[in-house]
């Protein structure tokens, strides 16, 4: 297996954003009531993460990383502390573009997202993707694969949760567990399941 393919699998399943790292849970729980909306969110996540992580990688290495300005005679300059603001700006812009594209070409998905699409701007899983990229010193190709992989992992997880929740619509749950309560329990169980992937990765 090539390294990139391995990285893709690793980021999608072993380091699954909502189920292993518990990141991005608010949209994960809020948009998992209907399968359609969940798939829409998943596609949006793949798009946003697949774009923002490599984009942020370029900005980081070209402008912010320690030593990025040595060609200008400033080898000691370290502006990595600006990474957080820069990343958020890029993510916000990409989300806006995505919103315009959906509004224009897929109004049904746009209406299903409602207020959640603008919320992707401050979604922690997306920002975490870019921050991990810095921390783990990924190359450009690795960043792109990592972004797509994390997005795919999120999409798979949210679609699965939505499918289970739609089935549970007919279950006779105790009153206190209906809705969000049950969603939390399901998330916990799914996360236990996903920890099996970590075992498999460790055994390799």
């Amino acid at each position: 297996m090539s390294d990139l393919w391995q990285l893709f699998l690793l980021s999608a399943f072993v380091d699954n954003m909502p189920l292993t790292l518990f990141l991005g849970l608010c949209t994960f729980l809020a948009l998992s009531k209907k399968l359609e909306a969940a798939i829409g969110l998943g596609v949006a996540m793949i798009g946003v993460m697949g774009l923002t992580v490599p984009l942020n990688h370029l900005i980081y290495t070209a402008l912010l990383a320690p030593g990025a300005w040595s060609w200008a005679g400033l080898p000691d300059l370290d502006m990595s502390y600006l990474a957080l603001i820069a990343f958020i700006g890029v993510i916000a812009a990409v989300v806006q573009v995505l919103e315009m594209l959906l509004d224009r070409y897929a109004p049904a998905i746009h209406a299903a997202f409602g207020v959640f699409l603008p919320l992707l701007t401050v979604q922690c899983a997306i920002l975490a993707g870019s921050l991990f990229m810095v921390e783990r010193h990924y190359s450009l190709a690795q960043s792109a694969v990592f972004g797509l992989g994390s997005g795919t992992g999120f999409a798979v997880a949210v679609a699965m949760l939505a499918a289970i929740r739609t089935r549970l619509a007919y279950a006779d749950l105790p009153a206190g567990l209906r809705g969000l309560g049950m969603a939390f329990v399901l998330t916990g169980l799914m996360s236990l399941g996903f920890s099996a992937f970590a075992q498999m990765a460790a055994a390799q």
């Binding site: 402008l63 912010l64 300005w69 400033l74 700006g89 890029v90 812009a93 806006q96």
Partner: peptide, 17 residues
């Protein structure tokens, strides 16, 4: 440098949008 960098980035993104 840091200030102008962030300002350019934000203004640039806005113009693109």
């Amino acid at each position: 440098l840091a200030t102008s960098l962030i300002v350019t980035l934000v203004v640039g993104l806005s113009i693109v949008l």
